[in-house]
């Protein structure tokens, strides 16, 4: 479990990207528009002011980001359900809470990007109608969480090519990597091959 926790701990890559994000934002503030600031914060790289006159492109990007936020809210709620279930061991609970924290950070970053583009981020639902009756032990909870994380990887993989603003694609790829690490750790805890293949969609 210690190994798993080490894998699950906030990685140097994420920290590095966060630092780079701040640095790049400060360096490029003069080069981007105010509305793009949130995008720059989210992506941490490149010029974020890359929209042309087509407002449909902006609204489509906002829509995709909001779909992502909706899924992230669901993940936060699912981990909360698991944490409060009483079914998780202390060590697993620690990892679950950490992963939940990552999803909350994703929501914050995505929401900032949406607001910087003039949109409004969606709120969490009051009820997710989770299949609680199927969650009777720790394995069930972990399988449920792993399914959500695996789905999240696919969702981000599908969204990356369709963002008009390529900085958002970059940001989504960063989040995708985090979701994939969650999925791998959960699979490992479940006794499954954490990385079942060379390719993934």
């Amino acid at each position: 479990m210690k190994i798993l926790q080490a894998k699950a701990s906030k990685s140097g890559l994420v920290e590095e990207m966060t630092v780079r994000s701040r640095r790049n934002f400060l360096l490029r503030t003069g080069a981007v528009t105010l509305s793009a600031a949130g995008v720059a914060l989210l992506s941490g790289c490149a010029n974020a002011g890359g929209y042309g006159p087509d407002t449909k492109a902006v609204s489509q990007d906002v829509s995709i980001l909001n779909t992502a936020i909706g899924a992230e809210h669901e993940a936060v709620a699912a981990y909360q359900l698991g944490a409060e279930s009483g079914l998780l061991s202390r060590d697993v609970l620690k990892v679950a809470v950490q992963f939940q924290g990552h999803h909350k950070e994703h929501i914050d970053a995505l929401a900032k990007a949406i607001m910087s583009l003039g949109g409004a981020p969606v709120d969490a639902k009051s009820d997710y109608n989770f299949p609680v009756h199927k969650l009777k032990n720790q394995t069930h909870v972990l399988e449920f969480a792993a399914g959500l994380e695996r789905g999240a990887v696919s969702a981000y993989a599908g969204a990356i090519p369709v963002f008009d603003n390529r900085d958002l694609s970059l940001a989504a790829a960063s989040i995708l990597a985090d979701e994939a690490m969650h999925w791998a750790v959960l699979r490992s805890v479940l006794g499954l091959d954490p990385v079942p293949g060379a390719f993934f969609s």
Partner: peptide, 15 residues
């Protein structure tokens, strides 16, 4: 269908 499970379910509305 595993690709769809980030947002969909057979039997309940999600994202």
């Amino acid at each position: 269908y595993a690709q769809c499970l980030g947002c969909h379910s057979p039997d309940r509305h999600r994202t």
